[in-house]
């Protein structure tokens, strides 16, 4: 038994090393001026970190554009799904299965297929959806549906929304008052989990923005791609580490929130 545990630790340790080593070396590379045989030269050098923070407006512009491109679709998707899920839980529970199926479709239509299909349908048609930004918002809103659906649904059932609304109604509250003053405040954690998971997915997107936005849009990911192809190694490394840190922070926040929600749910079912 003890031997088995040692084996598990070895497998786990090797996996962690394999995953951390590239990040670690990229970080070291960022603090140098290049590789000298197998060692980084002028280590530690802060030249490119200073440049990143004080003289890289393009990078930060692209990061901000990425954030903007993520936030709007997340808001659209959340608003739509909150209303849909509320209606389903309150009035049409039988349609839950259908909504679940619809929400899972983006899992099967991964990025490239979805982007090409949308381009074929709407590009150059002169409608509002032909606008590349609108197109990108729409595609992003759809692609995060599985995360949004799952997060909101679990939350609504966990807070026992139907009975809470009934209790409020018997005490004289209107449906709208109950929705905004009781249901939404109790869904904030679920909404935050869904938003963070979606943000993590959209922030790291490369194929969709490249296909739909083309050269019009440079986001953090496309910027990194271009830098990796034409930029100077140590400088590019600082960009990569910075983007990694942003994504890592989001992932940690969503993990912690999700953990908190699961703990609360477990306490409720005790």
């Amino acid at each position: 038994m003890k031997q088995n545990k040692v084996g598990h630790y070895i497998v786990l340790g090797v996996t962690v090393v394999v995953m951390i080593v590239p990040v670690l070396f990229t970080l070291i590379y960022g603090f140098s001026n290049g590789w000298l045989d197998i060692l980084p030269s002028d280590f530690p050098s802060f030249t490119y970190w200073k440049e990143l923070f004080f003289d890289s407006p393009l990078f930060w512009q692209n990061v901000l554009r990425s954030i903007y491109l993520c936030v709007i679709p997340i808001i659209i998707s959340l608003v739509c799904m909150i209303l849909v899920m509320y209606t389903i839980v309150m009035h049409m529970p039988k349609l839950d299965g259908l909504i679940q199926t619809i929400s899972m479709i983006p899992y099967t239509l991964r990025g490239v297929v979805l982007a090409i299909s949308v381009l074929t349908l709407y590009a150059g048609k002169g409608t509002i959806f032909s606008d590349r930004t609108i197109m990108l918002f729409s595609v992003y809103s759809v692609i995060i549906l599985p995360f949004v659906y799952r997060g909101l649904r679990n939350n609504l059932y966990a807070i026992n929304a139907k009975q809470i609304v009934e209790a409020a109604e018997l005490l004289g509250a209107s449906g709208i008052y109950t929705f905004f003053r009781i249901i939404v405040p109790n869904m904030l954690t679920g909404i935050a989990v869904a938003a963070l998971l979606s943000f993590g997915l959209l922030f790291t997107d490369f194929p969709i923005v490249k296909l739909i936005g083309g050269n019009r849009y440079e986001t953090a990911q496309t910027f990194l791609w271009n830098q990796q192809r034409s930029g100077f190694g140590p400088k590019t490394s600082t960009y990569i580490i910075m983007v990694f840190l942003i994504i890592f922070t989001i992932a940690t926040a969503s993990y912690r929130l999700q953990h908190k929600v699961e703990k609360q749910d477990a306490e409720k079912t005790k």
Binding site: N160, Q163, I164, A167, L171, I182, N186
Partner: peptide, 28 residues
């Protein structure tokens, strides 16, 4: 239901989790 004048207690309590005990009682 709002105008019938019925008070109801459910099996699963159905208290409003974002409100204190006093706020829950004061709601009606």
């Amino acid at each position: 239901p709002r105008k019938r004048g019925c008070g109801m207690v459910f099996q699963q309590y159905s208290l409003f989790p974002n409100m204190t005990v006093a706020q829950n009682v004061a709601f009606g």
